[in-house]
């Protein structure tokens, strides 16, 4: 059965988005953020912290099973606010929107780390917090490393290559490989071990 895509109605009314919330003093928050950016003002930061931290803590507590993780979200989010305040542009949106984005990104990366055991911190690529810019990091090296890895795999003896490729690139289990290649499970395991030892040496050498 085909479920059709619903096209977004172009005239959706967002009554609320235009009327700013009266409980939040947006001008004041923006001012503090600018003081943090321009003057590294700790007093302004403390005001921001007192306003946002308890709320972030409460929101994070509903998404993570333990308190330590929700504290990590507070710490990381507010730390990003301190270090990235210069990326905030009051002409583009409210301070709350910007801090929300920072918090959502931190939460996403931490949840991904907990669930998928990945520390790839993809959030700033998915939801850029500054237009056309990314924070400087190791990104490109990782990419190069994976190309290098593939090259090294291709240099392995055929028998080991088969096992490594099946296991890592085709995502087969060791048992599936044993069946597929018609070999005892022990042989698969030792070939994989041998290949990995070789890869380690090769990659180590290439990195030096």
């Amino acid at each position: 059965m085909v479920v059709e895509q619903t096209k977004l109605p172009t005239g959706v009314s967002h009554a609320k988005s235009n009327g700013m919330n009266e409980n939040i003093d947006h001008t004041q928050l923006s001012e503090w953020l600018n003081q943090v950016a321009d003057k590294r003002c700790k007093i302004a930061f403390t005001h921001l912290f007192k306003f946002f931290a308890p709320k972030i803590q409460r929101i994070a507590r509903s998404k993570f099973p333990n308190e330590a993780q929700s504290h990590e979200v507070v710490q990381e989010t507010m730390s990003n606010v301190w270090r990235k305040a210069h990326l905030f542009d009051a002409n583009k949106g409210a301070a709350t929107t910007w801090v929300y984005t920072v918090m959502r990104n931190v939460t996403f990366d931490l949840l991904r780390k907990v669930k998928s055991n990945r520390e790839d911190n993809l959030s700033d690529d998915i939801w850029p917090i500054a237009e056309g810019a990314v924070t400087e990091d190791q990104a490109y090296e990782d990419h190069l490393e994976s190309n290098q890895l593939l090259r090294v795999i291709d240099a392995l003896p055929e028998a080991q290559q088969q096992v490594v490729k099946g296991f890592y690139l085709m995502e087969m289990s060791q048992e599936q490989l044993a069946n597929h290649l018609n070999l005892p499970l022990g042989t698969i395991k030792s070939r994989l071990r041998l290949a990995l030892a070789k890869l380690k040496v090769q990659l180590g050498e290439e990195n030096d």
């Binding site: 700013m20 306003f51 929101i59 709350t96 929107t97 801090v99 984005t101 918090m103």
Partner: peptide
């Protein structure tokens, strides 16, 4: 628009 709304909502509680 959605981000602005959810941000308002997230940070407005317990004024």
């Amino acid at each position: 628009q959605l981000t602005e709304q959810v941000a308002e909502h997230s940070f407005e509680e317990a004024p």
